[in-house]
């Protein structure tokens, strides 16, 4: 019996240090995504710039420019890179699936990267559950925005969808746990069992521990952001006129060390919460 539920936060914070190599391998995925999305951003900017340039010359609107006049190579590149990003995100989600699995099984080591295919499949499952839980609030938000338009109902719609997003988020975490514990996608939508698990732990305790974990994450990210901005300024002072290089270096540092650490920490705690809830 744990003395306090916050002990699992302590345990989660220590967990990534059990295997630095795997932490960095996981971080490499995040770093890859960061670098690729920086390129996507830069290339998209080029495309927009070209589009605006053409629109200016022909006095037309951007939407009337024929595709052939745009930098097609760049557009293919952006599309390709977006697909790469998506695939890598699926791998990251698959790894998070494994982290939760290891946490529920109370294994002390970090999951390996041996079986890429099952990581990919698990990632798809993880992604489906996240999408399924967020689809209702998204629909309400989009539908409400379309129906309400500029009228005064819109803030209410916004409020309702925000509330639904929050409720969905809390259910989602337990649903992911439940799916991973039983290794079946169906269990992610077994609301009876999910709500049973949460009430077994106590709703206050459940919401409290998740909020606490999020606060700890927030504090760490603010502190890290502070240090990283410090490094950025330092780099900028040393290297002149290389904003692109600097932002990529910072993105790599952040992905390699911080994002991976946070991912491991948060999912580890989620698994621990599930373990506590089925006691």
């Amino acid at each position: 019996m744990m003395a306090s539920i916050t002990d699992c936060v302590v345990e989660g914070l220590k967990y990534p240090f059990n295997d630095i190599k795997k932490l960095l391998s996981f971080g490499a995925l995040f770093a890859l995504i960061s670098v690729v999305s920086t390129f996507i951003g830069a290339k998209s900017l080029d495309i927009f710039r070209a589009a605006v340039h053409i629109a200016e010359k022909t006095n037309g609107t951007v939407s009337h420019i024929p595709i052939s006049q745009l930098p097609v190579g760049d557009m293919y590149l952006v599309a390709g890179l977006t697909i790469v990003t998506f695939i890598v995100s699926l791998l990251i989600m698959g790894y998070q699936y494994d982290i939760i699995k290891f946490s529920i099984d109370k294994k002390e080591d970090l999951p390996g990267f041996g079986d890429i295919l099952s990581m990919f499949v698990n990632g798809i499952k993880y992604c489906i559950v996240i999408l399924a839980y967020n689809i209702l609030p998204i629909l309400i938000l989009v539908g409400g925005a379309a129906l309400a338009g500029e009228s005064s109902i819109f803030p209410i719609v916004l409020l309702i969808s925000m509330l639904l997003f929050i409720i969905a988020y809390f259910l989602l975490l337990m649903a992911l746990n439940n799916m991973i514990a039983h290794d079946s996608l169906k269990k992610a939508f077994d609301f009876g069992e999910i709500i049973d698990n949460i009430s077994n732990l106590g709703w206050g305790k459940y919401v409290g521990i998740i909020l606490f974990t999020l606060i700890v994450m927030m504090i760490i990210s603010v502190a890290v952001g502070f240090i990283l901005s410090f490094i950025t300024v330092l780099f900028a002072a040393i290297i002149n006129n290389q904003a692109f290089v600097i932002s990529i270096v910072i993105a790599i540092i952040e992905g390699l060390f911080i994002d991976s650490y946070m991912g491991l920490f948060f999912n580890r705690v989620c698994g621990s919460i599930y373990r506590e809830s089925i006691k």
């Binding site: 916050t6 606490f212 700890v216 504090i219």
Partner: peptide, 13 residues
């Protein structure tokens, strides 16, 4: 120190 940090966060909250 990690335990100490989490305790600190608890106290501040």
């Amino acid at each position: 120190p990690i335990d100490m940090f989490v305790d600190g966060v608890k106290v501040v909250i």
